[in-house]
Design a protein around this nucleic acid. Structure first.
Lengths: 189, 189, 189, 189
DNA sequence: AATGAATGAGGATTCATTCAT
DNA sequence: GATGAATGAATCCTCATTCAT
């Protein structure tokens, strides 16, 4: 009695397992068997659904970025003023759900994957562009011509804070958010 | 062939080869044989001198951080005013020697190693603390109580710019430096 | 190919192959690949089932000792008098099945393993104790207080004959058995 | 200033080191480097003197057997009656100098070497023959036609006691000697 | 005589991946 | 759909041995 719609469920389980396993290991050097065990299935089945380890990683990365995109979009829905929009974007970035140490560690490792895997690089570029564009829309009314540079700085700052959070023992989302907002206050008129 | 005193020469060659190989591959997933070939020797000799692959990586990381520390110290020597000191530190960070894509890629991967390897984490903490302390010395006369936060922001910003440079096709050191200095101008009275 | 329940079959094949390979080589210095080839499978599968070379050896040793224990027990079943029991034990020891040169060579090498491997030492102690206890039960009615010493002597004598058989070109089970029984005749009233 | 006569000194040091190292390790699986370090020299020098690891082992084995032969001969010198001769031979076998656990372990391992190395087997045969002949000379006046069998039994018994001593935690030379002499008393008229 | 330097060969172990059931 | 079985390929590491000095 094969369950109906087993595929999406299994795939989702594997994606979550991949993120958890990589996050816990702190490295992409995890075996398909480990991921599959974490997902409660055989490694053969993992291959059946994804075809290769690489594809599991890419799907996991896509999932992380999609999730981030969704949470940003949701946060933006209630934002009226440009200031609200900025705060929403920053808030989504440091949402505690994305800011647990293990998640960040997975994230950092998938980031490094982009150095090796063109598709991972592509995904990252999409995310960067989207974040940039969101920031620009909010910044332009406030900073005019300076918006571009502020957006670039902001993006780098957020990534840098993530990076350091990945290495600290307890990642402090609130502090990271405050640092970012503080920058914005200083830099906007 | 067995010149006396080969050890330091061979070790240095291996360290450089490790950085180059990891940088080119974009990943720590390189074999000792690759590193050794790049260094012009057998993998057995690499093991003879370092004992393990891990130790080669740690030595390479130590080398990168030491080099960075040295270039910072050198740059600081000629700096009189606090502003000069800040510019010297930032300049050393984005020195073109440290800012080739491959070097950054190696750097990013060694960064990720710290998630897994306690000794790598320790090295990184030392570097962070030293950078932070250098920045504070320069910032305190300029920003007083706000120095702490600015230093933290600056550190994260530099790391974030590195991260993004690692992923872009041509890393633009000058642009990264300008972004950083621009932040400082805005944030300092 | 993947018949269900392959595990016990494969494990048994590997155990026999290990004994044969070690016996033929006359040394524990055999590769897992050799054992696996002898057993008709890849070395990877051997590792899959046993985890390590050491574990293969221990299983082989356990097998040899178990087999010896079983043949002793079987022989004892039909033995009525103490004299019969003694003859049964000695007969089982020099049973031609256990007394082929290759088997003895394997045995000797596993013996040496006990110097290095605590688990192998434990197995051997169990075997020694059991043999000793079997001998004592049979000797006490015949030798009373002297039973202990005779048992000890008998055990050493059997081991010594094995040792020499391992080194002679054709191991002569009958002669070894005769030597042992002769000792018993002389020493028992 | 090369020391005169360094060669025999170095060789002797290596032989002793080989016995000690093998005895301590409980296995022939020791490296030339370990033996050389124990002997206080480089592994290259060990090769210079012996040519190969195998040859070191053979020399060590030869040394053990020669030493045993010498101690037997010495003991026999003061022996007048056949009974004295027997006691001398047995006494030499269980001399406390040859009966330390490490020495026995080395001995057992060199024994196993004979399964693999024809020259080692030859050495062992020589030793067996010599022991046998010594025993026969002493036994013939006491046991006549039965001398052969007793000699064979005695040889096996001694080896068996060695074997068991190698595996026990504290080898008890006195007990082993008593067991052997006790056998002789029982078996001789 | 003595050694550091150097390497080729080899071996245990791991793992992604395939396949029959 | 699901999995146990199976393996080829790869990798780290070790070590006996050689050689120039």
């Amino acid at each position: 009695m094969p369950k109906l719609g087993a595929e999406p469920i299994r795939k989702a389980a594997l994606i979550n397992a991949a993120i958890a396993t990589v996050g816990r290991a702190g490295s992409l050097d995890v075996t398909v068997a480990q991921i599959a065990r974490e997902a409660g299935m055989s490694s053969a089945l993992a291959h059946h659904y994804f075809g290769s380890k690489e594809r599991i990683f890419l799907a996991a990365m896509r999932h992380i970025l999609t999730q981030y995109g969704t949470s940003t979009r949701t946060a933006l829905r209630g934002a009226g003023t440009p200031q609200d929009r900025l705060r929403a974007i920053v808030g989504a970035s440091f949402d505690s759900a994305n800011f647990e140490r293990e998640t960040i560690a997975a994230w950092l490792n998938f980031y490094a994957l982009a150095l090796v895997e063109p598709e991972a690089a592509r995904l990252l570029r999409v995310y960067h562009r989207r974040l940039s564009s969101n920031l620009l829309v909010a910044l332009r009314p406030l900073a005019g011509a300076g918006a571009e540079r502020i957006a670039r700085t902001l993006g780098a700052l957020i990534d840098g804070l993530y990076l350091r959070a990945a290495l600290s023992n307890e990642a402090d989302a609130a502090a990271a958010e405050r640092t970012t907002l503080d920058y914005l206050e200083k830099v906007l008129p």
